[in-house]
Amino acid sequence: MSPDSTGLDAWVDVLSAVFMIVGATMSLGAAIGLLRFPDLLSRMHAATKPQVLGLFLLLASIGLQMRTLWVWPVLLVAWIFQLLTVPVSAHMVGRAGYRTKHLHRELLTSDELEAVVQKAAAKAAREDGSGDG
C-alpha cells in the first residue's frame, strides 16, 4: 500500500488481511448457525461465540493497520465491552427462552434443570392458590 513498503510492512498487511477475512467468516458462521440449528438455545450459541472472536480479529486488524501503539488500549476497551455484554444478553435471552419452552425436548440428551423448574412452578402455584383462597 504505502510507497516505502518494507518487508515487515507487507507482512503486517497480509496478517491483517487474513484477520479481516477470518473475522468476516465468523459472521457468516453465525448466520449459517442461525439458519441451520433446530432450536432457540442452540441458535444462541451461534449468535454469541463467533461474534466475540470476529470482533476481536477485526479490531486486531485495525490495530495492525493503524501502525501506532496508542490505539491498542482503545481497541481493548471496545473488546472488553463486548466480552462483558455478550454473555449477559445471551443469558437473558436463553433464560426467557427456557422458561417460555422454546426448546425441543427430543434434542436434549439430559436435562437437569427441568425437575428444579417444575418444583419451583408447583411451589409458586401452591402459593398463588393459598393467596387467592
Binding site: T25, M26, G29, I32, G33, R36, F37, P38, D39, L41, S42, H45, A46, K49, P50, V52, L53, G54, F56, Y98, L107, L108, T109, S110, D111, E112, L113, E114
Partner: peptide
C-alpha cells in the same frame, strides 16, 4: 474462544439440524 468459534462453525456446517444438546 478461538476453539469455540471453530467448533461452532464446524457444527453449523456439518451437523446443522441433527445436533444433540443437554442441560
Amino acid at each position: 474462544v478461538v476453539m469455540a468459534s471453530m467448533q461452532l462453525l464446524f457444527l453449523a456446517v456439518w451437523r446443522g439440524p441433527r445436533v444433540k444438546n443437554a442441560v
